[in-house]
């Protein structure tokens, strides 16, 4: 490809008819979906991780005389079963399939904005992975931390929230980053449910201009830059948290 060739392709692909705007809007949508899904995923993941690690700890009989069946332990058992079911389901199917199910089945008869549907699908999916990461993080915190919190009079949830979760979160930040990178890239399948995200924008430009090269290379570069920025952000956060010593 000669330089003038490149310039004219660039002209038709991005400048003409304001096509760059399609990319910009696509980028915006990709970011919107990713951020929404990350937040939903963390919220769901945290709750599940707490349920699962609470169940794990109690069933080992550290804090309870295990032979006593209380209402609490029955509820916990049921909650744990539900969480495991959720994890099996969501981790078992390809994200693409779950996005299609969400769009064509779950929300088929509801008038919900597509962005929200995508946030829902990716958030629910990501929650399953975040849950297992956070659970490992919670289990890695020394039991003494928990006991110190409870001995001061903090209840279970307060101890989790103020003492265990912040430390667990710090420990699993690298693993969470991986999950978020995966999530960001996986959003590229939302074109299949008619959403104009970054990937879809490139495909549309390609079918308009019959040039595949530039649009695809450009969005590849944009994805890479997004991942670099995300990595940077997390490492800044990590450094901030590391101030507090070990």
């Amino acid at each position: 490809m000669s330089w003038s060739d490149f310039c004219s392709k660039f002209q038709t692909d991005f400048i003409e008819k304001g096509r760059w705007l399609q990319l910009a809007n696509g980028l915006l949508m990709t970011i919107e979906i990713a951020i929404g899904a990350v937040i939903l995923g963390i919220a769901i993941g945290f709750v599940i991780a707490v349920v699962r690690s609470t169940y794990d700890k109690n069933s080992k009989g550290i804090h309870n005389s295990s032979d006593r069946v209380t209402i609490g332990s029955v509820i916990l058992w049921i909650a744990n079963v539900i969480c495991k079911f959720y994890l099996t389901l969501l981790r078992g199917m390809p994200i693409m399939v779950f996005v299609l199910i969400t769009y064509f089945i779950i929300f088929a008869n509801y008038d919900v904005s597509p962005v929200l549907i995508a946030v829902f699908a990716f958030g629910i999916n990501s929650g399953a992975y975040v849950a297992e990461i956070m659970r490992a993080g919670i289990m890695s915190i020394d039991e003494g931390q928990f006991e110190a919190g409870r001995s001061l009079g903090l209840n279970y949830v307060q101890t989790m929230t103020y003492i265990i979760a912040p430390q667990a979160f710090k420990n699993v930040l690298p693993a969470l980053l991986n999950e978020f990178i995966t999530l960001l890239k996986e959003t590229s399948v939302v074109g299949y449910i008619g959403m104009n995200d970054l990937t879809r924008a490139a495909i549309l430009i390609k079918s308009d201009t019959y040039d595949a090269f530039l649009p695809l290379i450009v969005i590849a570069i944009i994805y890479i830059i997004l991942v670099i920025l995300l990595t940077k952000l997390v490492s800044i956060l990590e450094r901030r948290l590391r101030v507090s010593g070990r």
């Binding site: 020394d142 003494g144 931390q145 006991e147 110190a148 919190g149 409870r150 001995s151 001061l152 009079g153 903090l154 103020y162 003492i163 912040p166 430390q167 710090k170 948290l241 507090s244 010593g245 070990r246």
Partner: peptide
């Protein structure tokens, strides 16, 4: 438990908080 202080062999201070925050949390 608020009225029963406990001190552990391994201190169990909260490593992610300053000394002051360790003391004022509860």
């Amino acid at each position: 438990r608020q009225k029963m202080g406990m001190v552990f062999q391994h201190f169990n201070l909260f490593p992610h908080m300053t000394i002051l925050n360790n003391m004022t949390l509860a």
